[in-house]
């Protein structure tokens, strides 16, 4: 296993009453794919936002490449933003509804790649839109005119324009039809095979996690209850809660044994 590039240690985060993170430590190695699984409200999204430097933890620290993230300013901060990209939950809200597809995808380049000229930025943006399988017409469309799958692809393309080394994905499959979910997972797999890219996939669906990650972390009310490789986890989790969710998932799989498990088609939608 290669060295850890993004490391969180003892993260704690409290909102008014609820405790979202309660001493979470997790490390992400270069090129690996990690899934964070847990029910809604267990602190997955908070953890992701802390990892991306968008939220400051009340206690604990996040290190990237050996340097602590929260005090980073100026050029260092920009370098961190370029390397660690967060794909937000709810693609509908994460895209400015007044902006066209191309402007949306170009935004990170406008902010972080001033060294590129405008035509260069547009070329990069168009390339990525093409790579994630968006039709050329999306360039001029507004998010409101796109399908849910297209919006999710737009988010992916936008994050990838910066060629990050870590991609944090917050529920990228929520609200999508199963075939689209499979296609997005396949797309992620493809992206990872092309370049050194670590992905952290936050999801509440064990199925998606099993498909899209080699390692799994189970969270429950702000704590990590299990950290395993995916194969070991599927073979037999240590923690009772993990066993519970795995058993639940397997029972559902058995019920729908007629319908084949999520199979990737790879086709663009």
């Amino acid at each position: 296993m290669s060295e850890a590039i993004l490391v969180a240690q003892g993260l704690e985060r409290r909102y008014r009453r609820a405790c979202a993170l309660d001493g979470v430590s997790v490390s992400i190695s270069a090129g690996e794919s990690l899934a964070i699984v847990g029910e809604s409200g267990c602190g997955k999204s908070t953890l992701l936002r802390c990892l991306a430097g968008l939220e400051r933890a009340d206690a604990g620290s996040v290190h990237f490449g050996g340097a602590e993230v929260s005090p980073l300013r100026g050029e260092d901060r920009k370098r961190f933003c370029r390397s660690v990209q967060l794909v937000l939950q709810d693609a509908t809200r994460a895209l400015n509804p007044w902006w066209s597809g191309l402007t949306l995808v170009r935004e990170p380049l406008d902010l972080l790649r001033r060294d590129l000229s405008m035509p260069e930025r547009e070329t990069v943006a168009r390339c990525w839109m093409d790579r994630v399988g968006l039709p050329a017409s999306v360039v001029e469309r507004l998010p409101g005119e796109l399908s849910g799958g297209q919006r999710q692809r737009l988010l992916l393309a936008r994050a990838m324009t910066l060629s990050p080394s870590v991609l944090l994905l917050d529920e990228p499959l929520a609200g999508l039809d199963p075939p689209i979910q499979a296609a997005i997972l396949e797309l992620l797999k493809g992206l990872r095979s092309e370049r050194p890219l670590a992905t952290v996939l936050v999801t509440h669906s064990l199925g998606a996690a099993a498909q899209g990650a080699e390692r799994i972390v189970v969270m429950r009310s702000g704590r990590l209850v299990e950290q395993q490789t995916m194969t070991a986890f599927l073979a037999g989790p240590q923690d009772p809660y993990s066993r519970e969710i795995l058993a639940g998932w397997q029972a559902r799989q058995a019920n729908f044994v007629k319908s084949p498990p999520i199979k990737s088609s790879g086709s663009a939608h």
């Binding site: 936002r49 920009k78 933003c81 937000l88 400015n96 972080l112 910066l162």
Partner: peptide, 21 residues
């Protein structure tokens, strides 16, 4: 809004957020 948070993820400062979003 999510897109403001997203722009912060691209290192956007307050002036940019005001002006653009």
């Amino acid at each position: 809004e999510g897109y403001v948070l997203a722009a912060r993820g691209f290192g956007a400062g307050p002036v940019y957020l005001l002006r653009k979003h």
